[in-house]
Write a protein that binds this DNA or RNA. Structure first.
Lengths: 314, 314
DNA sequence: GCAAGGTCTTGCAAATTTGCAAGGCTTGTT
DNA sequence: AACAAGCCTTGCAAATTTGCAAGACCTTGC
């Protein structure tokens, strides 16, 4: 796109539905508004706004473009606001980016413990349903599922973790038993939305030979909650299992995936001792929590009757 | 901000670290690059890039602006891409956008039930840690927390729901008791990351007079898990409470928020009977599930000893 | 120390964009 | 049917932006 500012003009016109009103709002002549939008349309090769005597209406392409235009607007507003802020270093605040499985099922207990011991510490967790691409000012550090191949970054491996197929006991009670891989065919599979898989490490189901996703989400946490509520079966992080009552792994000896978490930081932060200390603590506690959660899973499976009684849902 | 396009130029200069290279990349004269960035700096009243003979480096204000510039870039790229798409029909698959609180704590059980009754149905849930702004091609329908004020949309109110301050029983046992509003001051508050609140309806804490967020996330689910694991107290959707053992509402008579969910569809879909039927079913079941979950909360509080025993954590 | 290379800044002319105003079209009112 | 109001489009002049080229400054290599 040649000129981002044309999007600003388009957005005003889409909202005001008249060149005159958009021009007033933008403090531009209506002729200019019309030309700018026409220029954008020409650049994109699409009509974005259809002109009729009742006013303007979005075309299909225009409607598709709207959310992105709004996102851009929000970013521009935030950019303007960020310039006004008088930032005095990080000053006790640390921002971590993480895939949402880690952000929901691992980080909260770790951050709760660290903050309990460090009352002056403020932590922000950016959970995104995809791999976080560290940029220095988006976050201070990130947890990733693969090693970044470019960028001036330092990478430390946190730990391996396992994933398995799982379903709720209630779902399993209502559906044919699964005793081998063929038995999976009759089941509803829950996983990522295929066109929203941003890292090949996340493409679990393809690796297991399960391709059709009947119910999907861009978020691991949502997938987990779908499985938990009996929508079907899908791949679950072992460390997430203790978060729900009544989940059962399926054919764990036949279907098992191992992945790794990495702590990713910007090289330039090596000299920042506050961040170094936090990163050390985070690493240590994440590793410990993973071991602890995996123990819980093993114990729950070693004593299934006891687990079922303790994990009775509300 | 006067000209959004200046952000594009700034971004290139920040990345290339030289007027010459940025100009090459942008197909602009270096003189133009310099002037455009200077104009942006003048408009914002801030130096964004410091000039030295080793090249250019971001100032602090420039570094703060970077993530927003990147977000704008992503939106612009997506906008350009959206204009290219030739979208075909849906064919048995339905995509729903929802705020992540709804996507994690309400939709999974509803979708599980609907899919159980309709095996040929494929559902995709797009969970975003912000209000989803419906565009026809991003999703077939969306659940929102406010009524859209513009756009050719049909809006149906799903239901009101309540939010309250809450904390885990373990956290409460380890911290000073809270008997009135003043008692909140000594507690760690968990909430949204302030610069990532995209809809004023989500600004719960400001409405309650609680402003400092010690531990934050862009995701309601992560906030919930932080609270659940004892990181502090924060605002929780009532309908989410049954998903965790051992959560307690705090001063529910003094601090209570009511919000609403809306089902938002595009007007042009009114004639699509498959979507109409799905929307009807979704509406009905969401309303029922909300009533059911709120009943569970009320019952758990009416019998606290019994609730504590049943909700013993693993 | 000097020369070469690289980079940025600035003045001026060329290119592009914008505002103004007139004309055309539609709708509503008398 | 005629007229007025509102809106958009288009041509032209004014305003603004951009490219070009020269000069200034710094760094590096010999």
């Amino acid at each position: 796109m040649t000129d981002w500012d044309d999007i600003r003009i388009f957005l005003a016109l889409a909202r005001m539905e008249s060149l005159g009103r958009a021009g007033q709002h933008l403090r531009l002549d209506p002729a200019t508004v019309g030309r700018r939008v026409a220029r954008l349309e020409e650049g994109l090769g699409r009509r974005l706004i259809s002109r009729s005597h009742q006013g303007y209406a979005l075309t299909e392409a225009g409607a598709r473009l709207m959310p992105h235009a709004i996102a851009a607007e929000n970013a521009m507003l935030a950019a303007g606001k960020s310039a006004e802020e008088e930032q005095t270093g990080l000053s006790g605040q640390i921002r971590i980016g993480a895939p949402d499985g880690c952000a929901n099922f691992l980080l909260p207990q770790v951050i709760a413990a660290i903050c309990s011991e460090n009352p002056a510490l403020d932590v922000q967790i950016i959970a995104l349903p995809r791999v976080f691409n560290l940029s220095r000012r988006e976050a201070d550090m990130a947890i990733g599922v693969s090693r970044p191949e470019t960028g001036r970054l330092s990478v430390q491996k946190i730990s391996d973790y396992q994933l398995h197929l799982a379903a709720s006991a209630r779902y399993l009670a209502q559906h044919p038993p699964i005793t081998d891989a063929d038995g999976l065919r009759d089941h509803r599979i829950i996983g990522y939305i295929p066109d929203m898989i941003f890292d090949s490490e996340l493409d679990y189901l393809a690796e297991l030979g399960l391709e059709r996703v009947a119910v999907g989400s861009n978020s691991v946490a949502v997938q987990f909650n779908l499985i938990r509520h009996g929508a079907g079966l899908g791949v679950v992080h072992d460390f997430a299992l203790p978060a729900a009552a009544d989940m059962r792994r399926i054919l764990p000896d036949q279907f098992s995936l191992t992945r790794s978490f990495y702590l990713i930081r910007h090289l330039d932060d090596r000299g920042v001792s506050r961040l170094n200390r936090f990163a050390e603590t985070l690493l240590r506690r994440l590793r410990r929590e993973l071991v602890h959660l995996q123990d819980m899973v093993a114990k729950a499976e070693a004593a299934p009757d006891r687990a079922a009684a303790l994990n009775r849902p509300v």
